[in-house]
Amino acid sequence: MSDHDHGHVLSAKSRDLERDTFIFIHLQTSKLFMGFNQKVTPVTSALIHRWVAFLIGDRGPPEPFWLCPVTLASAGIMAYRMVASGPGIDPQSSEPLPPGNYGWYFDSACTSCWGPPNLANSPFRLTTIQGRLEDMKEYLSEDFERHEFPPIANVTAATARDQGRCRFTGATENTTVAWIIPPAVSWETQDFGRQSDWDQAPFVVTPNLITMHSTLKPHFYGNNFTVDVDDNRRIVILRSMGDAQRLLPSHLPDHILPTPEVDHYLRLHCRYTLNAMLLNGDISETYSNGLILQTMHELGVNHIGYHDYHESDMVPFDDPGWTTELGREIMADVLRQRLALSRYRADLEEEEADAETDAHSDDDDDELV
């Protein structure tokens, strides 16, 4: 499936996650706010509403909203404007949400869509746990030693609690004990205003350790899957995991009785995962305004739509710059601008001709008088 089958160009994040379902909000133009890969985890309107409330947490409840199917019209180069193309979906609907484009509206009639939802102060970064660990590795050597080698006493206690079995698969072979939320990134689970004085101590505890199959560890830290504790501990997959995906059941097995303490850290992992994997991914994150303007300049496209525009300023059409994703979008905008300018000039000439005809008619009337 090509990007344009979605009605818009996919960002690097959306392409990497193989998203097929997109939720837009409207600012000056429409921006992608959330995206899903329903090939690995189907969603419903009710589930999205529950996850949004979960992400907002203590800052909620969220302002009521409706999802509405939309079509996207071009609003410039790598920019779009959404237009409602169907009725709003019942917020409590448990019907599968068909893949496609949706708008975030604040009324059931899908007329009010201005402004972003109240997730701007989400206490989690938009990167994976593994990505954050790699970013921090150079200057947090002490924390990383603790990350790689949890205290022996805690590991021993977690192993005994889990009976040496993977909490996800029940297997006893090829297992490891790892943090659910590595203490080195624990500050990212807190509201921004509380991060400066955050203490890691509450995360250097046995309930924050879990026994898992070694193959699953990079996927757990890559936020490719998580556990939705409040949905009967359902295992939610956010990115295709290849062969490792076959190891996972639909729900966390009950061979080990769940405890509120472990559930607390699993919820934090779930919130971290939903933030990192579902939020954002707008095309502007891949193609900034600066990059677009620079590429336009390189292609000689500087005055599209104005009277001083000359096609001779542009590089030849066989230049490889036109074959890139951005180059093709710039050319499409050139053609749109050229068509709009042509129509404007035609309308102007028609108005001038009509005015001249009216003037001649008035002169003829004067002569008859």
Rank of each mutant, 00 (worst) to 15 (best):
F144A: 05
T111V: 12
G57D: 09
Q28N: 11
G57Y: 07
R132Y: 12
A79E: 11
P91D: 05
E148S: 15
P151L: 09
Q130M: 08
P150N: 01
I89V: 13
I152T: 14
L67F: 09
N37G: 09
R50N: 03
C68W: 01
E63C: 14
L32E: 10
P123V: 12
V83Y: 11
D107S: 03
A53D: 02
L47Q: 15
E142A: 13
A46W: 01
Q92S: 13
G88W: 08
L72V: 13
P123R: 10
I48P: 09
W114G: 09
F106G: 08
D107R: 03
P98N: 05
T71V: 15
L119P: 05
N101L: 08
L55S: 11
G60Q: 03
P96H: 06
L72G: 10
G131Y: 04
M78T: 05
T156K: 12
F106E: 04
G88H: 10
P62E: 06
G88C: 14
M82G: 00
A46D: 00
T44N: 02
P99M: 09
V40D: 07
P91R: 02
A79C: 05
F124L: 04
A160P: 04
P61Q: 12
V52H: 10
T111G: 04
L140I: 02
P117F: 07
G103Y: 02
G131R: 02
K137Y: 11
V43C: 07
F36C: 03
S30A: 14
V70D: 07
T111L: 13
S112L: 14
T41H: 14
Q38V: 04
K31V: 15
N154M: 15
M78W: 04
V83Q: 13
P62K: 08
A153Y: 06
T156W: 06
C110D: 00
C110E: 01
T127N: 11
A158M: 05
N154H: 15
D90E: 11
G57Q: 11
V40T: 07
P42H: 02
Q130W: 01
L97A: 04
I48V: 14
V155R: 05
M78E: 11
Y102R: 00
P116T: 12
A120D: 11
S141N: 10
M78P: 07
N37V: 10
S30P: 04
G100W: 06
F54W: 10
I77L: 01
R50I: 06
A153W: 02
I77F: 00
D143G: 14
M34T: 06
Q163L: 13
T29R: 01
M34Q: 15
R125S: 06
V40I: 07
W66I: 12
P62H: 07
Y105D: 00
G100K: 11
M78Q: 10
P98M: 08
F65R: 03
R50K: 13
P123H: 09
E134Y: 15
W66D: 05
E63V: 15
G57A: 13
A158Q: 01
Y139I: 08
P91S: 03
A158W: 03
R161W: 04
A158N: 05
